[in-house]
Design a binder for these strands. Structure first.
Length: 601
RNA sequence: CGGACCGUAGCUCAGCCUGGAUUAGAGCGCUUCCUUGGGGUGGAAGAGGUCGCAAGUUCGAAUCUUGUCGGUCCGACCA
């Protein structure tokens, strides 16, 4: 490709709304154009990156046995009603919808379980056809509340989604493991450091799931891990051991104490310490958070309890309420109560809610990890300006108190698998794999005939990779002060040739052109910068755009030399006759190295 | 959905508070020419904006008021 024909448009300044490196650099390099909020046009350079990522994904998923298909983006409401997810997605307002002229409503695919399950139910009739895995690379839509961070969180994006069908959960387990390996290989080939963590399965549903994370300070997810034991989980899901706290002396019976104007735990603790209850800390308090949970059919009030120095994990709480609701579930929406709702539920101003008398909620749930072994506590009295000291959950709580795991695990908590301690880091979710089980196949009556002459619902798995998000995550892992440093396997071009002589310097130009032909013939993705611009401008541009290998034909040409420089590496003078071979060897070695790393997974 | 803020040239922004002399500006980018030719070179000349939109106040509105549309950030929520 000739740079003069590439419509290059780099920016010197950062766009005002670009906060993170990938957004900033992709905009400055001219990869991206913002078309609307959460809507981006992929420019010619980004298209090449996306194509390369797609090719690797397709290659590895196919290698794991996947069959590529293409499903419609417009999906009939009726199909989604069969699985019951129409209501879920309407409630969370995650799905964009359109209507046709007849007034029929369609969802724009946020994911495709319904469509593929319907497909499988038509084309798979026998257990002999199983297992099978279909996948596609296609546009997805999510009506994000707050699109942000450039390509990271958008309304429309490209995702590889795969769906496997099985006769048994053992078969699903085997494919799940294969897909996990395929994911690791995929990211290795792209030069991304990605790792699998245990995850909550969210609105997709199912029995187990892992997310693939790219470590990045700007990641929106928090991961808890222990490098020694290998445990790693999204904070939404993470379990752990929480250290107990020393007991302090409190009255033997539950005693009401006036705590005028002190609703927050920190205030109550300070007040009590100043009024004769020395040694009480937040960890001796009972934190009560009141919520309203909505399912498709019910609105439920909930009081959640956790030790005073810890936080409620709303994902865990949602799951706990869903379990309690049984057939009336699942919970589609969970929100903290408004002040007037708190007053109605406790008869007191916010800040004085507790687990004892006066609490009027459908469910009261206490955290097992922090409260099951707790001693006497300080809790709200459900009476304005009063707390209870010496409150014993087992003795003084209202009947019907449920126990579940609600606490948010944090760095410093014990690893659930070993004696070690958990650490915390941020990650970008680039992939997710789920064991769905029979959730969709049962709901949609997607069945096959087994060897026992009976009909069985498919056991299913599903697997996603955010193709366009991977491009952004790759930049987050590969940039420096000058710009992007693409891994060669996903770079828009592999090599750039920069003629850096005076205009009309025939020797320089012909040397550059000769190298250009040589590399093209070798199948290298090469660009020659034939623009009429100063060398400095060209260098800046290609560093920003992030081409992995650069050949400069300049003042050395007179002595038969050109310069070869990997992006971020050292400049080397190379004889003109060898430069092409040097570049070709470098590119091929890089690709081979990534390939080998992938095969080792 | 709550809170804060912003819409002026392709991009980054100034001007607005305190309405009139700015004929709406700067830098970057773009066009033409000269210069330069190894890290965003120097110079000259240009093109480019009904100041988001609508209504109002006023002799006069980019500037004040109201509405509206769009956007950004924080929070809530959310795969």
């Amino acid at each position: 490709m000739r740079a003069s024909r590439m419509n290059l448009a780099t920016l010197r300044e950062d766009p005002a709304d670009a906060e993170i490196a990938s957004h900033r650099l992709l905009m400055r390099g001219g990869f991206l154009h913002k078309s609307g909020a959460g809507l981006y046009l992929y420019g010619p350079l980004l298209q090449r990156v996306i194509d390369k990522i797609s090719r690797i994904v397709v290659d590895e998923i196919s290698r794991a046995g996947g069959l590529q298909i293409t499903m419609p983006i417009m999906q009939e409401q009726a199909l989604w009603e069969k699985s019951g997810r129409w209501a879920t997605y309407q409630a969370s307002r995650t799905m964009l919808t359109v209507r046709d002229r007849a007034g029929q409503t369609f969802g724009l695919a946020p994911t495709a379980e319904e469509v593929v399950t319907d497909y499988a139910s038509h084309v798979i009739t026998s257990h002999k056809q199983l297992p099978v895995c279909f996948f596609q690379q296609h546009t997805k839509f999510r009506d994000e509340i707050r699109p942000r961070f450039g390509l990271m969180r958008v309304k429309e994006f490209i995702m590889m989604d795969a769906y496997s069908f099985h006769a048994s959960s053992e078969s699903l387990d085997a494919t799940y493991a294969q897909m996990r390996t395929a994911y690791q290989r995929t990211f290795k080939r792209m030069g991304l450091e990605a790792f699998a963590v245990e995850a909550d399965s969210g609105a997709i549903g199912g029995s187990g799931s892992h997310e693939f994370m790219v470590a990045a300070a700007v990641g929106e997810d928090t991961i808890l891990f222990n490098p020694q034991s290998g445990y790693a989980a999204n904070v939404e899901r993470a379990i752990g051991r929480v250290a107990a706290v020393g007991k302090v002396s409190m009255p033997a019976t539950c005693t009401a104490v006036a705590t005028p104007g002190h609703g927050h735990i920190s205030e109550v603790v300070a007040f009590l310490n100043a009024n004769g209850y020395v040694g009480i800390t937040a960890a001796h308090c009972l934190k009560c958070v009141l919520f309203v949970a909505k399912s498709a059919t019910a609105e439920t009030t909930v009081a959640a309890f956790v030790r005073g120095d810890r936080e409620i994990n709303e994902v865990k709480l949602t799951n706990a309420i869903t379990r309690l609701l049984g057939d009336a579930g699942p919970v589609l929406n969970l929100r903290p109560m408004q002040p007037d709702e708190v007053r109605a539920a406790t008869g007191a101003e916010p800040g004085f809610a507790g687990a004892g008398e006066g609490l009027r909620v459908k469910f009261a749930i206490a955290d097992k990890l922090t409260l099951a072994e707790a001693g006497p506590l300080v809790g709200g009295a459900n009476k304005t300006d009063h707390h209870l000291v010496g409150f014993d959950l087992a003795r003084d709580a209202l009947p019907g108190l449920q126990w579940d795991e609600l606490v948010t695990i944090r760095a410093g908590d014990g690893d659930p698998r070993s004696e070690g301690v958990l650490e915390e880091k941020r990650g970008i979710e680039v992939g997710h794999i789920f064991k769905l089980g029979t959730k969709y196949s049962e709901a949609m009556k997607a069945e096959f005939l087994g060897p026992d002459q009976k009909r069985h619902p498919f056991v299913m798995g599903c697997y996603g990779i955010g193709t366009s998000r991977v491009a952004a995550a790759a930049v987050e892992q590969h940039f420096d002060a000058d710009g992007i440093t693409w891994p060669v396997t996903i770079a828009p071009y592999e090599v750039v040739i920069v003629p850096a002589g005076k205009p009309g310097d025939v020797a320089v130009e012909s040397a550059a052109e000769a190298l250009y032909s040589e590399l093209q013939q070798a199948g290298i993705d090469v660009v020659i910068d034939d623009r009429d611009a100063k060398p400095g401008v060209k260098f800046k541009d290609w560093d920003l755009i992030g081409i992995p290998f650069r050949i400069v034909c300049g003042r050395g040409v007179a002595e038969g030399k050109v310069e070869c420089k990997p992006r971020g590496g050292e400049n080397a003078d190379v004889a003109m006759a060898d430069a092409g071979a040097t570049a070709i060897a470098w590119v091929r070695a890089q690709i081979a190295q990534r390939r080998a790393a992938a095969d080792a997974c």
